[in-house]
């Protein structure tokens, strides 16, 4: 093969923005599933998940059990990494630099600095540029998304309200992000400075979004998806893929529901396919009405 490649091998550059953001591009049109055991991880992979999120407890159980929710046990994360060949993500607490460092050392493929866990710092998020491992972060609006991207997030997910099985907050946050973006599209260069101030986000990023008409990183949806139709709804509203947490393994037939959500995510604009895959799935998770949640139990308000 030396005839086709005369030059010597150039040193590889790892952890670049392109490699981190590019990883999320590969997940698009896909479903990322919360799993708590290697067995669940295999079910998710067999169902066609593009990645799994390794957790100690799914959000619905974090809500039920209460207490401080932390990074998962390294043995458990290792077990899941061993069990599947698809990418493995794991969550660190907001601002918990060391949990993030540990997850990087364990070799997870993406770190979710997540409001589902109990925040470790009520002022600062983690400086994500300092890591080789890429980060995904939640956002409820464009300003929040851009602040996370400024800190180095390589992927954004709308927050929704995890562990409720209720898609209403996911819809609210996705619509908010999309409408904030369309509003920027109508502004001229002079107005973008004031818009940046209002959004509390760096002007360069605001300008970039105004030009692109989208975030400079991949945007997924999370927090409350429980059915194939929920997943397709989030895609139609502009999500490039979906995270499903408690919705799968808190349902009657996880393997079947997981496969159905994967299919509905690909054929999100084809109601016939969505109808077909929605048949005979057994019970969905029961779900919680958001207005019955006390303020302190709303995860979406964590992070700033």
């Amino acid at each position: 093969m030396s005839s086709t490649s005369p030059s010597t091998t150039q040193a590889p550059e790892t952890g670049t923005a392109r490699v981190k953001r590019g990883m999320a591009e590969q997940l698009k049109n896909g479903v990322i599933m919360d799993v708590v055991t290697p067995e669940q991880a295999k079910i998710a992979e067999d169902a066609g998940a593009v990645a799994v999120m390794a957790l100690e407890r799914v959000p619905a159980d974090i809500r039920k059990d209460g207490g401080v929710a932390r990074m998962s046990d390294p043995d458990m994360i290792d077990g899941i990494i061993e069990a599947v060949s698809i990418p493995v993500m794991a969550k660190s607490r907001i601002g918990h630099l060391v949990e993030a460092q540990v997850l990087q050392a364990l070799g997870v493929d993406y770190i979710d600095e997540s409001e589902v866990l109990t925040p470790a710092d009520e002022v600062n998020h983690t400086d994500k540029w300092a890591f080789t491992t890429p980060f995904v972060c939640g956002a409820t609006n464009l300003g929040e998304a851009l602040r996370r991207i400024a800190e180095g997030a390589a992927m954004i997910r709308s927050k929704g309200e995890a562990g409720t099985g209720n898609v209403v907050e996911a819809v609210r946050h996705m619509r908010q992000i999309k409408s904030d973006i369309s509003r920027l599209r109508g502004l001229d260069n002079n107005e973008l400075y004031a818009a940046a101030k209002e959004l509390r986000a760096p002007h360069e990023l605001v300008k970039e979004v105004a030009e692109l008409g989208k975030l400079p990183v991949v945007l997924f949806s999370a927090g409350g998806v429980a059915t194939p139709a929920d997943a397709a709804l989030m895609r139609q509203l502009g999500a490039e893929g979906v995270f499903v947490g408690s919705g799968i393994f808190k349902s009657g037939d996880p393997a079947k529901r997981a496969a159905a959500i994967v299919k509905a995510t690909t054929f999100y604009d084809d109601p016939k396919v969505i109808a077909d895959v929605s048949r005979g799935l057994g019970e969905a998770m029961v779900g919680i009405n958001i207005d019955t949640l006390p303020e302190g139990e709303r995860y979406a308000s964590r992070g700033w």
């Binding site: 086709t4 490649s5 005369p6 030059s7 091998t9 150039q10 040193a11 590889p12 550059e13 790892t14 952890g15 670049t16 392109r18 490699v19 590019g22 990883m23 060949s85 990418p87 990087q104 070799g107 997870v108 493929d109 993406y110 080789t132 491992t133 890429p134």
Partner: peptide, 19 residues
């Protein structure tokens, strides 16, 4: 061979000559 160059932390950029 799938994932031959490693996991995400080993993902990289490099110049490549393509015939």
């Amino acid at each position: 061979r799938r994932n031959a160059f490693g996991r995400q932390n080993e993902s990289f950029e490099a110049a490549v000559h393509v015939a």
